[in-house]
Design a protein around this nucleic acid. Sequence first.
DNA 1: CTGAAAGCGCTTACAG
DNA 2: CTGAAAGCGCTTACAG
Lengths: 356, 356
Amino acid sequence: MSSKPVSLKVLAAHLGLTVGTVSRALNGYADISPATRKRVQTAAKELGYRPNQNARRLSIGSPETVGYLMPRLNHSGSQPFIAQLLQGLGEALGKRHWDLLVTHADSSQDELAHIERLVRSGRVGGLVISRPLKNDPRIRLLQDLKFPFVVHGRTASCDNYAWYDVDGEDAFVTAVNHLVALGHSRIAFVGAPLQHQFAQDRLNGYQTAIKANGLPLDPDLIQIAEFSDDGGEMATNLLLDFAQPPTAVVCISDTVALGALAALRARGLRPGIDVSVIGYDGLKFGNHSNPPLTTMAQPQAHAGRRLGDMLLAIIDGDDPAMHQELQRAQLLRRKTDGPLHCAKAQQDISKREEIQ
Amino acid sequence: MSSKPVSLKVLAAHLGLTVGTVSRALNGYADISPATRKRVQTAAKELGYRPNQNARRLSIGSPETVGYLMPRLNHSGSQPFIAQLLQGLGEALGKRHWDLLVTHADSSQDELAHIERLVRSGRVGGLVISRPLKNDPRIRLLQDLKFPFVVHGRTASCDNYAWYDVDGEDAFVTAVNHLVALGHSRIAFVGAPLQHQFAQDRLNGYQTAIKANGLPLDPDLIQIAEFSDDGGEMATNLLLDFAQPPTAVVCISDTVALGALAALRARGLRPGIDVSVIGYDGLKFGNHSNPPLTTMAQPQAHAGRRLGDMLLAIIDGDDPAMHQELQRAQLLRRKTDGPLHCAKAQQDISKREEIQ
DNA sequence: CTGAAAGCGCTTACAG
DNA sequence: CTGAAAGCGCTTACAG
């Protein structure tokens, strides 16, 4: 279909030189006369010569390509940060003229086979994986294969590989402390299934902070829900149905928190006044929720670049354990956090429910 | 770093065969005895043999890879659909074991050079580009190079290449008609700079519908703003400052519409009651805005798959002009559209503004 | 049915 | 300084 690109062979023929010489001239070898180097370079530019990368990479023995293993989309929410992540990865790789291959397994069962195929086929020289499980078989596989990789996120034991993560535990300590400082003592946690480490981290932070503040750890106040707005709404409804409902809720994500807000509004409760809600992520969209969502905003801008730089360094031979970066989330106060209302107001909440 | 993958050579040696024979056995050539075919297959599985794709692709003369040219992120809004699009592309390509390469130009000036490099280097056999300009030089370049490509979106003249798009003009006709049916006659349009064709299409739809309904085309009611929530807010403030403000606003995107809602709320105007607002995109997040956003929802689920299938067909030799698919957006009524209020209410709006 | 050989388009020691 | 040659790991006519 497309016209054939010019090869080294035709370029060499055009110049009356051998392909070896032309190749060395183009690749800046020292043992080429300045005159022919110039001649070769101008001819290459004129003819629009670009080395065939498949050939080049076969020859040098490196795919000069890194793979990103896309997490499977859960029907409910789209990956909010994926575009930014890919752009950052692309920037880091681009500095060295490496390529970015984006793949996803057909099913989660196939994921290990998918990775092994990818590694063995020589298409990539390193891999970026994200959203690790607590004990992620992908990480074990890659370690067994001794294949360079970095993880966006962490697992329970994460000493011996490279990762970039935001400290979810710290974030939820901060969120709970903030609510305690506002006078709250019945603070609930709406989380997601604990197979993912990030879900566990955030729950840990919640529990740590509750205890550190001398509050009782009421198991009723810990709700594990579907990781979506609907999940957040259902969990919050459960919480509000208790005899002693919480006066504040920390949610594992902004999306889940939006569901919590919906549950509150549906009962005529005012988020940030009657019940406080804090999300996690810092999505821009939280500015436009009803009311604007207070959240733990994670610094997301550099994740892609950092992961890309790390991976290249590891491929160059760095010890993966050298490359571990933990960022902190920051409290972003908008309108859904507020001081505890007086006892009377709390009673009103309970009453209102009974009426419903 | 990683242990070397087994090559065809070691597999052949292991079996006491030549590489040619082993290759043919693995690739299902007919002239191989069933016995050795079996023997080869089991040995390949045992040793975990995977053909080196760089070598294979060099040999067969196809990169078996397609490139996706990421649009540059505008600081303000993230690409909401990009993850879905990539997943869909990956599915379509995966059926044929093609790979997906994701790239972005360092700057918009470099984009043409970037494409040319990509094409000439033989890394990809086809390209997906998105968000075309009205008269997009990338498309001309790819046509000149006679290189297979598909466009997510359309340009002004789009007869002679392949594209997948949602009919923005139709969507805005639908939105305006809906508002007219609700009794509105002063309907504004908040758009974005017109270099992108989609911005023009949506404006065209607005204008077409205004005229078709026998309404005057008031240039004041067309506001071209920054493509962001802030842009939408500023534009809406301008509209509300007019002596005769609009009673309804159609916005070029959900994000812009969120800004419009913010502007209304800031003035104490109730979206959907005092002033109607309709967005475009159908973001899930619109369920949680204040109030939930009425929008023209575009069917996004199949875009990636369709674009991938089209591109593969074109690479196989199909005429690109055969592959043009126009989808329609659907009105998704939530809470920001409503009937025109009586004259008195309208006066109140004007008054309220004068007070501010 | 299998082997021997050429070729894909590069890179890179090795001669001279 | 440049050429001639081997090699990267595959595929695929061509013999036999």
